[in-house]
Design a protein around this nucleic acid. Sequence first.
DNA 1: CAGTGGTCTAGACCACCGC
DNA 2: CGGTGGTCTAGACCACTGC
Lengths: 222, 222
Amino acid sequence: MDRGLLPPGYRFPSEPEMAAKFGVSRETFRAAVKKLEEEGKIRVQHGVGTFVIRQLDHVPSNLNRLQSTSEMLRAAGLQESDRHQTVRHGECTEEWAAYLNLKAGDPVVILERGRMADGEPVMTSVYILPKSIAGRSFDSAAFSGSLFQFLEHELGITIRKSHTEIKVPPASDPYVKSLAVHPDTGVLLMQQTHYDENNFPVFYAYDYFRNDVFRFWIDRMR
Amino acid sequence: MDRGLLPPGYRFPSEPEMAAKFGVSRETFRAAVKKLEEEGKIRVQHGVGTFVIRQLDHVPSNLNRLQSTSEMLRAAGLQESDRHQTVRHGECTEEWAAYLNLKAGDPVVILERGRMADGEPVMTSVYILPKSIAGRSFDSAAFSGSLFQFLEHELGITIRKSHTEIKVPPASDPYVKSLAVHPDTGVLLMQQTHYDENNFPVFYAYDYFRNDVFRFWIDRMR
DNA sequence: CAGTGGTCTAGACCACCGC
DNA sequence: CGGTGGTCTAGACCACTGC
């Protein structure tokens, strides 16, 4: 289908027929059919048949899959380079408490990172981690690269999911000001709660992206 | 699990055992397990077991599923009311041509709609439809309500998918100006190509949302 | 009514994990 | 090595569609 050998509109032989042709059981063949249907390559109609539909271009760097910001930078073709990085300790606000399953006032570690490309700032992240998770891991400044990878290798925590709110931050936001280096540079804000494999919140993040450098896509279905 | 009767960390009996308990075959039981796993309610570990994980709040109005703007308005608790609506005919631009599988200069129908709530504008949409699809359906001004429903009932076209780019539009954009009624109102732009069940592009849309009225969420997994 | 996909079964064997 | 989930099978019957 990708090579155009099976044109859009092509109708497959029936499932028992195809299963026999491949020498597998019908259930096994149907598992493959289901995958292709989920990928949006074929359309299956009960009582009618299975058809090839128009193949859409694949957009690899979209929002449907969770990526670390390091991975997003790489996908955008940018060299990863920190502009600055600060670590400080603070108290959990009401807002963070709601997302991180904490109480207001609980100790948190606040990590701030700016990234550059071609001598210009392109994004800024502020990470909020419960002190109970972060411990003293960030006290020695040996940390660099992906936070996802750091959590996985140093603390054995795997990030599996995120819940992301997409916003236009107010122009008065200082992070916006530091990124809006050109007059018409839009800045997009993602406020994200990140969860491990048990759905426990691990950290909350404010990610500011220059929209002239990063483009964001979603594929949506009804 | 939703009622908390099975707490996070609870381990299910083995699959053959559970299948027997429900009086179904193991494959059938596994189909149910797979659904719960996709919903993010349980975690299945090969060779280990199946466990209840922490239940997340369900956010009904998110970007993971495709909705018509009418549905989004309803989800935001707003009464649907058009501010204005105009239909005009035009020629396809290079940009639209790429998304709509047309050639530049092909005839298109351009539909513009503004929506109000509590006496204020809250969103604006500009829809681009190929004349070959729209025909003369929009000439008589009898059209109101959801464009999705209109296409389905009048033309027999079902919108199944969309490919959405999320942007911060420049402040100079006239649609932004008309929506930015308060000093710190952010405006989010979604540029969307909508496809039918055969993946054929049906229309292209510019949807401008006031971000103080609409909030946008995505759940993402690795 | 014939032909298609949708579902379910009982059983077998494999792959992985922890002890 | 024992117990878990992952995969596959051959066959049966049901549900939907179009003629």
